[in-house]
Simulated scan of single mutants.
Amino acid sequence: MPPRSHELRDLLTRNSVPFEFYAADSETGLRLIDEFTLDVERLPAVIHYDGSVQHDPSLADVAAAHGIQTRPPRGVYDLAIAGAGPAGLGAAVYGASEGLRTVVFEPHALGGQAGTSSMIRNYLGFPRGISGGGLALRAWEQALLFGAQFVFMNEVTGLSPRGDTVVMTLGDGSQAVARAVIIATGVTYRRRDIPTRTT
């Protein structure tokens, strides 16, 4: 299975988007290729509920097709947060609840690494535990209610000062400006380049 298929399936799974996957050479896959006139040279393809098709889309393309904001609106934010894990979501709730114009940038999925945990037992306020996805969803809803904005599938790749503000360069080349920035990017596991031996 091509790595792009894994990447797209991981995106949808981590963001709790329901989907079905069919290999191109399966009976259903062959039927869908014929029914939607899919270009087999540009797989994987995403078929949306409305019948529209995206051939080999980027993660941002898939997100945008679901109505997800992938580029920041113009203007100066009081607070910008890189990362929507528990720390970033907590900062968004507190910042927005104090009336700060707040934006959160998340390149992958709500909840970060914690969002994939089946049970978190050491988080304040949940003595019986809560799933990582459940915790992230509650925090996201709370931040939205206070007016925080979220930009998904776009990461902060650079910071530079401009007077009393900070200019953030994003992965797609766009920029956002804020008076304060919190970096809450969490953990990324490094993989060693060790050959795999099969028996």
Rank of each mutant, 00 (worst) to 15 (best):
L170N: 06
R190N: 13
G171Q: 05
R162H: 13
P107H: 09
Q142L: 08
Y22C: 11
L30W: 03
V156E: 03
M119A: 09
F19R: 06
Y22G: 10
R128D: 14
V53H: 08
Y22H: 15
L170I: 05
P2E: 13
S118T: 14
L79D: 06
H55A: 14
N154H: 06
T198G: 12
F105V: 08
L30R: 15
V76E: 02
F150S: 00
A91S: 10
D61Y: 07
L32A: 12
A136M: 01
T185I: 07
I183A: 02
L100Q: 02
D39L: 00
S58V: 08
G186H: 06
E35V: 11
G88K: 04
A87Y: 01
A92R: 01
S58F: 09
S58C: 09
G158L: 01
Q142C: 08
P86S: 10
Q142K: 02
Q142P: 09
F21S: 08
T102F: 03
R42G: 08
M168K: 03
G173L: 01
T199K: 12
R192Q: 09
A114Q: 14
I33Q: 15
I130N: 01
I81P: 06
N154K: 07
V181K: 02
L144C: 04
Y123M: 12
G75H: 03
R101L: 11
L30Q: 15
F126A: 14
G158I: 01
I68D: 02
R71L: 07
G88F: 12
L110D: 02
T185H: 03
L30K: 15
L43Y: 00
D50C: 12
G95A: 03
R71K: 11
A180E: 12
G115T: 10
R190L: 14
R179I: 13
R71N: 04
D164Y: 11
S58R: 14
S117D: 09
V187Q: 06
A96I: 00
L11G: 02
V166P: 04
Y189P: 03
T28Q: 13
A63Y: 02
H108P: 01
I183V: 13
A92D: 00
A114I: 14
A80R: 10
G95I: 06
S26P: 03
G111K: 04
D61N: 12
S5F: 07
N122A: 07
V62E: 05
E155G: 15
D50V: 13
G147N: 03
G83F: 02
A60E: 05
P127A: 13
L137I: 05
N15W: 00
G67S: 01
F146G: 07
T188I: 11
G67C: 01
S16N: 10
G115Q: 06
S58A: 15
